[in-house]
């Protein structure tokens, strides 16, 4: 293993994050505060408790997931797309680095960034609602799994995209709707039976449900199923990236 290279890529990517610290951290904090003001205080005060949890506390896991998903995808896709766009990718291809090492560096950094943001949002939410975390270890497991899985997905998008528009389109058209429809702000048990069945095809439902369970032991689907689906999605992303590197897809002609 070329650990020096993994560390170099990781550090390089993290430096980009800290260089734009303001945008990187302040904007998720502000949007979280807005969510709490609007959904927690203004609307939430008129919503009765869901599964015995106040609405404000109910949306915390959903909010963190929302940020984890979108940040992981955008960080990772931009991280690998930009060297392709600027041409500096030649150096990664010519260096004695394996696909695994490249993915570890880029995806590791993207996941680390979104985890940082997730933690900041968690801390921010503590100012608005009383937080109780029933299963901290599982909470961490779900956060890690989600951050890595969706950073892998972002990496795939960054390799696939051949323009800045394409880089935006998947997050905009697929990730954001899936997250909003994935029970971030409501229990899918509140949906009519038909839409509930449709929701079961949304992988985000399983992520949010498992993550919410780690907070207040309330879940839409069983925790085991949540874990299984998340891991399956992780494997799917890994297999896709493996194929991309084997064939040199969009990397080598």
């Amino acid at each position: 293993m070329n650990w020096h290279a993994v560390a170099a890529i990781f550090t390089y990517e993290m430096k980009r994050f800290f260089r734009t610290m303001g945008q990187s951290l302040v904007s998720p904090v502000i949007s979280t505060v807005l969510y709490f003001v609007v959904f927690g205080a203004a609307i939430g005060s008129r919503i009765e408790e869901i599964d015995g949890v106040s609405y404000g506390a109910f949306i915390v896991p959903g909010l963190i997931m929302l940020s984890l998903l979108t940040q992981s995808v955008s960080n990772a896709s931009f991280g690998i797309y930009f060297p392709r766009f600027s041409g500096t990718i030649y150096e990664f291809l010519a260096a004695p680095i394996s696909a695994t090492e490249m993915v570890l560096g880029f995806v590791g950094a993207a996941a680390a960034k979104s985890l940082l943001i997730g933690i900041v949002i968690l801390a921010t939410s503590a100012f608005f609602v009383p937080l109780s975390i029933a299963h901290p270890v599982w909470m961490v497991v779900f956060m890690l799994l989600t951050a890595f899985t969706f950073s892998l997905l972002g990496f795939i998008i960054g390799l696939w995209a051949d323009g800045f528009e394409k880089l935006q389109i998947i997050p905009l058209l697929i990730i954001t709707p899936l997250t909003f429809l994935g029970g971030s702000f409501y229990s899918i048990n509140l949906l009519p039976p038909f839409w509930k069945s449709v929701s079961m095809f949304n992988p985000v439902v399983y992520l949010v449900s498992g993550f919410r369970w780690s907070f207040n032991e309330v879940a839409d689907v069983s925790v085991g199923l949540s874990l299984a689906i998340t891991c399956l999605f992780l494997l799917l992303c890994l297999a896709t990236i493996g194929w991309m590197f084997r064939t040199g897809y969009r990397l080598k002609t």
Partner: peptide, 10 residues
């Protein structure tokens, strides 16, 4: 320095 590390060197 980054390039050097990519090649696995301290």
């Amino acid at each position: 320095s980054f390039s050097r590390q990519l090649y696995g060197r301290k």
